[in-house]
Simulated scan of single mutants.
Amino acid sequence: MPTIRLIAPSGYPHDAQAMQRGVKRLRAAGCTVEGLAVLERQEGRFAGADAERAADLAALAEPPAPDIALAIRGGYGATRLLERLDLSALGRRLAEVGTLLVGHSDFTALQLALYARSGLVTYAGPMLGADFGAQTPSPFTWTHFWATISQPEVALAWPTRADTPPVRTEGTLWGGNLAMLCSLLGTDYFPRIDGGLLFVEDVGEPPYRVERLLYQLHLSGVLRRQRALLIGRFSNCRPTPYDAGYDLDAVIGQLRRICGVPVVEGLPFGHEADKFTLPFGTPAWLVVEDGTARLGFAGHPRLASPWRPEPVGIVAARC
C-alpha cells in the first residue's frame, strides 16, 4: 500500500470539505495519507509561511520517504520557494528513494526548477482537492493516475482535429501550466529542452492573453526547439466583447502559422475533471494520423510495487 504525503507549496486549502473528501477516498483505497498538518495552515493567500512550505519540500529528502508527494492545490506561491531550496540535492535524493512528486498548475514551477537543477522526473497530474476530493470524482483521472505510476510502459490516445497533418516523432515529454512556464523563462530555473514534446494548459486566461504567452515561447526560441506542441485544456478561456470574436481557435490558427512545429490539440490535461497523468522529463513518442493522437512513454519513475486500487466510483461511494 503506497504512502502519500500531502504537500502545500502554493495556495491554502480554501475548500476544506474537498480536502477531507480527498483524504477519505485515498484512505478508502488502501493508501496511507500523512502530512495532514498542511491542511490546517494559512498565511495570507498561502498555505503557511514561505519557510514552512519550503521545509515541507526539503523534508521529502529525509527518511522515511513517502511513495508519493501529492500537492493539495495550485494557486500561487511555489515560485517564492525556489531560492530557499537546494534543488540539486533534493532532486538527487528523491530520485534515489523513488518518491513521486505529483501536481499541476502552480506546481509547474517546482517541476521546471527540479528538472533544470537535477533532471528529476516528476508528474503533471491530479491534486488532492480539485481531483480526488471533487464532489463527483473522475473515474478517467483516477484510472489513468494509478495506471501511469504503476506500469513500465504507457500508451495514451485522444481524438484531435481531423485536418492535423500526420506526425511521427519522439522527444522529451515536458510542460504544464502555460503562465508558469513563461514566468520562469530567462531564469536558471527554466530547463533547456531540445527536441521535446511540450504540453501546455491554463485556466481563466482570455484568448488574446493565451496568444501573448505562446508568442513569448515562440519569440524566445523555445517552440522552434521542440518536436511538437500538445495543446491541453484552456478552461474558462472566453473572449471579451472587445475581442470581436477572436477566440482560442483563432489563436491556435495563428500559432500554427508561426511556430514551425506540429500543433496537436485535444490533450486531456488541465484544470478540468478528466486528465491524463504525464511524466515531466521522460522520453516519449507521438504519432498523429486520421484524427487520432497517440502518446507513449516508458522508463518513467513508478511505484516499487504496482498498485491498482478500486475504481473511484466505488471508493467515492464508501466515503
Rank of each mutant, 00 (worst) to 15 (best):
G129Q: 07
L94G: 08
A124H: 06
P126S: 11
L110D: 07
G103I: 00
G133Q: 05
T99I: 06
L85Y: 09
A109N: 14
L101C: 13
R84C: 06
P152F: 03
E153D: 13
E153W: 04
G119I: 14
L112H: 11
L82F: 10
E153C: 04
R117S: 15
A89S: 12
W158A: 01
L112Q: 13
V154Y: 09
V154I: 12
T122K: 04
L81T: 11
F107C: 02
A124C: 15
T148M: 01
S88A: 15
Q111H: 13
A113D: 10
L110W: 14
W146G: 05
A130D: 13
A147S: 15
H104I: 00
P159G: 12
L90E: 04
V102Q: 02
V154K: 00
H104L: 03
S150H: 02
A113M: 08
G119K: 09
L81F: 14
L94N: 13
L112N: 14
A89L: 10
G98C: 02
G91Y: 13
L114F: 15
L101E: 05
L101V: 14
G119A: 15
F107G: 06
G119W: 13
A116W: 12
Y123Q: 11
V97G: 04
A113R: 08
A130V: 03
H104T: 14
L112V: 13
G133I: 06
G125I: 11
Q135E: 14
S105P: 04
R93S: 15
D86F: 12
L81Y: 10
F107R: 05
T148P: 01
P152M: 11
D86P: 05
F140H: 12
A130M: 09
D106M: 07
T143I: 00
A113K: 12
E96F: 07
T99L: 10
W146L: 11
A155C: 08
Q111S: 12
V97M: 00
A113P: 05
A134N: 05
D131T: 00
G98T: 06
W146R: 01
T136H: 07
A109D: 08
E96P: 01
T122I: 10
T136M: 00
L85T: 06
L128A: 01
T143L: 00
H104F: 06
Y123H: 06
P139R: 03
H104R: 01
A109R: 04
L94C: 13
F132H: 03
A113Q: 12
T143V: 01
H144W: 15
L100M: 05
P152W: 10
E83N: 13
A113G: 11
Q135C: 02
R93A: 15
L112G: 04
L81E: 01
G133D: 00
A147K: 13
A89C: 11
F132Y: 15
L85F: 10
W158Y: 12
T108M: 12
F145P: 00
Q151K: 10
A130F: 09
A147V: 09
D86R: 13
S118V: 06
Q111V: 09
P137L: 05
